[in-house]
Amino acid sequence: MDPEITLTALRDFCADRLGPQVATRFVGLARPGFELTEAEPGQAAGRSRFGGRALLEPGTPWPTCDGFPLSLLAVLDTDVLAPWLGELLPAGTGLLNFFVLDGDSEQSDPAACEVALAHQSTDPRVGRVIAARAAHAVETRAPARSSVFEPVPWAASPGFSLPDAFDPAWDSLARSPGAEHLDSYDIRTALSDWPEQPGALHADDTAFGRPVFPTGSYPTVPAGEDPNRYHHLLQLSDHHEWSIGGEGGWMHWSIPTDALRAGDFGRAIPTPDHW
């Protein structure tokens, strides 16, 4: 698949249902991303996977929250994904390791729950994203009390995603000329056959693109900050060995877009969706 060809096909698809003017503005909200599914042998997206050991550069400290070790949930091999993402990532970003304070899974240490109770689920300290140059990264054994999940290699299918129904990105579209009387419901009704469009992302587990919030919410970012200035990194549904806790939920990580372009993953934050 070619990103420009796919985006043009997406625009044509939407223009047939929304008209060319609204379609152009609507497709302007599309972001490139990937559907993540369990890979068949030989089909994995580089070293991308759920679970397993962290892939860190030697000397990188294991992340902690109040001294308690976080647990690795996933790795994305961005060197494989980068061609579809254009200039979104700095060259050579390598591997992204996604950590979280595991106070809920069957493997979690009882003390982790006590630490988690002292923090909001969106506190940057309970989730961390650490980049590692692929040529230098080595499998790193988790410290004691950190959960280790069975590795599941991921295949990554490229496409484009658009905001879900309650994403603040819709506000900018509603203010566009010719779209003043359209809202997310109107557009999604007109695009009811959206999953049939080649290149449309509609998976439960995704990398980059835009997040889906089944509860009808949207990314929670620090007070006073504009969620439209953040970019989605990873979405994990509740179909995994790990659990977000409570009745369930999906895990997300987001990052300010300027930090993403600069490769400053220390500014990534957890943006979970509980129910």
Rank of each mutant, 00 (worst) to 15 (best):
A155C: 03
T24E: 15
G249N: 04
A54I: 08
G42R: 03
D238G: 13
A131E: 11
E114W: 08
S172G: 03
R261Y: 11
P61K: 12
W250A: 08
N228E: 10
A144I: 11
T6S: 07
S146C: 11
G19F: 02
T8G: 08
W84R: 08
L18F: 01
R17Q: 14
Q235L: 06
A131C: 04
P168H: 00
D109H: 10
Q235A: 09
L88N: 04
T6G: 03
A268C: 00
H252N: 15
F208E: 00
E180C: 01
D204V: 15
S254W: 10
S254Q: 10
F265A: 01
R210H: 02
A142L: 01
A174H: 15
E35V: 01
P222A: 14
V80E: 03
D167L: 09
H136V: 11
G52H: 08
G103L: 10
T220V: 12
M1Y: 10
E57T: 12
P63W: 02
P153E: 02
L73V: 08
A23H: 00
S192G: 14
W84T: 13
F166H: 14
A23Y: 01
Y185Q: 15
N97P: 13
G52K: 02
A207D: 02
S243W: 12
H136K: 14
N228A: 07
P272A: 09
H274D: 09
D205R: 13
A118K: 04
P41E: 00
L88R: 13
P219Q: 06
G216P: 02
S172N: 08
P32F: 10
T24A: 15
R261C: 15
P151T: 00
A39K: 07
I255V: 01
H252I: 14
A111T: 06
F98H: 13
P63V: 04
R267L: 09
D104Y: 13
A259M: 10
P20L: 12
S48Q: 03
I244L: 10
E247S: 14
L56W: 15
L88A: 12
R25Q: 15
A30K: 05
R141F: 06
A45F: 06
P256E: 01
E57H: 02
Q107C: 09
Y230D: 09
V22N: 03
G28H: 01
W170L: 14
D2A: 08
H274R: 13
